[in-house]
Design a protein around this nucleic acid. Structure first.
Lengths: 319, 319
DNA sequence: CGGGCGAATGTTACCGATATCAAGACATCG
DNA sequence: CGATGTCTTGATATCGGTAACATTCGCCCG
């Protein structure tokens, strides 16, 4: 910047102002200096600016990823969520710092202007951990009554309710829920499901499964038949679970959807390609990401921000 | 740091040295100062350090994402790749800056110490664009003879060849390839496939499909039967294509794998849950990510670095 | 006993930007 | 015509670290 100043025959500060589109400089000098900057490939030094401005223009996104192997990040938090976040933040001039949960104390994270937490649903303690940093923070997941974070998520309650509605409307009377009610988001799906059914005097069977894997779905259905339970509809908390369930059903001689209706959750492309094509509840992740980003930015800006749930919609395919 | 210095009764620089584990300070003072820092919750200011050190300790990861909607990032570049990158970089003290292709000129990207490009396979021009920044750069994808970037990818050639081998070993003689040979990675899968078959005097039918969607797979198979082509094996370049193909085959009255063998690519969890479970070629993304990270770090370090292809392996399931 | 050497710590300058306050040029006004 | 105000630009200090060079001190050795 000093060099540019010399070239333009002005002082450093004038260059700074010109490049920052400050109204304090004549439009003439501004343009002259900007042209000069372009010509010489001048690059602003972000560290210097951040140092002086005492902010980092960075939002840290903390993703829950089991480190090596295990559950990959395939299922619950697809990249489109990250895509939405990234798109929105960078277009606001912010950088996106990606970290996993395990470098919590990371200096770079602490230096961020704001935090977005993804996939912390299971670990409320993790949320508290980051809370201590005292940074503007937005969490993806389910809203819970007794804590005060800003939460963005899809309306899991409504998602569950819409499945119940569908089951009722096609005459199903013995529904089963497969999922993990300890997980806040899943618990809400369950609540929506149960409440809607309760309105019609029906109480679903709850089948608790911790894993979201295919095998888990298979096993769930097998256990149902082992216990000789009567059922005609399954609401699985993820597409993978649903696919596992269908697989087991077919193996056991049931037909889908004639004997048993099955609905999954997430609307993964692979679910759509399943045979038969899976009915499922869709969440709009891209938009969720954009919303998350906008909320942190608002918080950083000091504006009041409220939690928000995005609507979901039931995609009825062949199951 | 100045405050800490006052508290400890030493100078700033001694504090700096103590916290940086420099051998220039007595272990006694070092520990005293470190304890003091912990006690008072001292936080290093990264901007200041980066400014002084003239480096950002940051690697930018540039991801090809269609902005709004369209193909989400589900299919080709799963999060586990990012996970591997992030894990490796942060444990080396680096930050991961996530950006999409569309904020190319981004000041933060230019300030990074290194670049990792993901999903640029289709856009060789994008690679050149970033090349101009003159930063250490590593690209995920297929190695091509006529450019000089450091490339990490999975061995698509070998992947294709292994499918061919399998087809031959089970007596298939009329194989079809579905994919987009303009895409470098896919082209190599095709080459591996074709070369291996050629060794046995067989020439596969090439069915060019640009999209990696389910519908595209369906359509591909329909066009085959419309043209009354004889075929007994399909190698699809993605699991989704394969699932679409199978779906169409079943609709058209073929049985899989009796009439037609089908193999996909990527080993997605959903492919494994498909009915019937999909045979596919697996790539180890997590490891790919870690390798990418290690290579950029080595480049930043000034060490010589070579491209590297990771082995793939064929997972034979029911198709 | 003084010069020399090494270990521990300190002084000063600097990285590259921006905020604050000051100053010069020029127009307006009583 | 001098006072006042507006517009544009500049000098200086500062953000929080670290490198280079300087200093102090104790010890060894001839």
């Amino acid at each position: 910047m000093a060099d540019l100043a010399k070239l333009a025959g002005v002082s450093k500060i004038t260059v700074s102002r010109a490049l920052g589109d400050s109204p304090l400089v004549t439009s003439e000098t501004r343009e002259r200096i900007q042209a000069l900057a372009r010509k010489h490939g001048y690059k602003l030094n972000l560290s210097a600016r951040n140092l002086r401005l005492r902010r980092s223009h960075t939002v840290a996104v903390i993703v829950e990823m089991k480190p090596s192997s295990g559950r990959t990040m395939w299922d619950p938090y697809p990249l489109s969520l990250l895509g939405g976040i990234s798109q929105e933040l960078t277009s606001a001039g912010y950088s996106v710092l990606l970290t996993t949960r395990h470098d919590a104390g990371n200096a770079a994270v602490r230096a961020a202007d704001g935090l977005i937490l993804l996939g912390q649903g299971v670990h409320q303690d993790a949320v508290k951990l980051y809370d201590r940093l005292g940074l503007p923070m937005v969490v993806w997941g389910a809203e819970s009554a007794h804590d005060s974070h800003v939460v963005v998520g899809s309306d899991n309650r409504q998602g569950g309710a819409s499945v119940a509605e569908r089951f009722l409307s096609i005459g199903r009377r013995h529904p089963v829920f497969i999922g993990n009610s300890d997980h806040p988001e899943m618990a809400q799906r369950l609540h929506g499901f149960v409440d809607e059914l309760a309105g019609h005097g029906i109480k679903p069977l709850l089948l608790r499964r911790v894993d979201w894997t295919l095998e888990s779905g298979v096993e769930a259905v097998r256990s149902l038949t082992r216990r000789k339970v009567r059922f005609d509809a399954i609401f699985a908390c993820s597409d993978l679970l649903a696919m596992g369930a269908i697989r087991a059903l077919v193996e056991l001689g049931f037909t889908v959807p004639n004997d048993v209706s099955v609905v999954g959750y997430d609307d993964t492309p692979h679910g759509a390609g399943f045979l038969p094509p899976l009915s499922t509840v869709r969440q709009n992740w891209q938009e969720g990401g954009m919303l998350l980003a906008r909320k942190v930015l608002a918080l950083i800006d000091g504006q009041p921000v409220a939690s928000q749930m995005l609507p979901t919609n039931l995609v009825v395919r062949a199951t």
